[in-house]
Amino acid sequence: MQLVISGLAMGCVYGLIAMGFVLIYKATEAVNFAQGDMMMLGAFITLGLTNDQYMALPFWISVPIAISLMGCLGYLLDSLIIRRMFGQSQLAVVILTIALGFVARFLAGAIWGHDPQSLESPISGQYFRISDIVIGVPEIWIIGITISLTVVLFVFFAKTKLGVAMQAASQNQMAAYYMGIPVRRVNSLIWALSGIVAAIAGILFASKNAIDPGTGLLGIKAFAAAVIGGLGSLPGALLGGLLIGLIEPFAARYLEGDIARIMPYLVLVLILIFRPHGILSQVQKKKV
């Protein structure tokens, strides 16, 4: 039971990063491999604003600042860099974002150093117990925020005008233009949104674990989660994240160390072989 709760919390963080992947994929058909690094940046910005050795702002002030900063960063990234790749192949965008990840890791290392640091947030370090199970307060926060964010985003895509416009832009850019959708601005907005999600994931991650610039490599695992769930499906991202988050602690408990470490990837390969487009697949056969 202890394992389930910590696995769920970790899985929610994976799920949040995976949601960033899915958001961008859903709206622009691009895959942002720098999503993990954006999470890392979000965490470090909050840390830089909050911790005593840097700016020492109160936590509840620095969180909105960090979230809005990351939103702006996402918007600017798209409007200054990614937009030039408009209409190019997916692979080019993948490589571009990998390169952006390199730069982000270098910047974070240059500013905040390479040692692991932890965020001094009011929710970290507290816990309570129900009979013999220890539940950390951060874990409750992580699970609660993730679930509510998933619901909000799901409703946003299904119901609001902007959400539908985003889906249209991804399915056929030219047709979306003809329908009067400002495709470029919609794309930038979705990048801003995914920056915000990344920042939230980063803050939640940092209040439970220590972070260093290499934390962004977690993004690969989160991307695996997004693929397991089926790229393009928000609940799928959460599902995949939870699956990976749950597999990890249980494998570590019941299997040998080395085999346990590869379990998430083994599951990924198996799922890709038997369900090539993920559990909640979004792919339909083309009708001619």
């Binding site: 622009t28 058909e29 209409g87 190019q88 997916q90 991804s170 399915q171 056929n172 850019q173 030219m174 393009g232 979004q282 792919v283 339909q284 056969k285 083309k286 009708k287």
Partner: peptide, 11 residues
């Protein structure tokens, strides 16, 4: 040439 991206979700 100017290209426009179409979804890969229908194939």
């Amino acid at each position: 040439q100017k290209t426009y991206l179409k979804t890969e979700r229908t194939r």
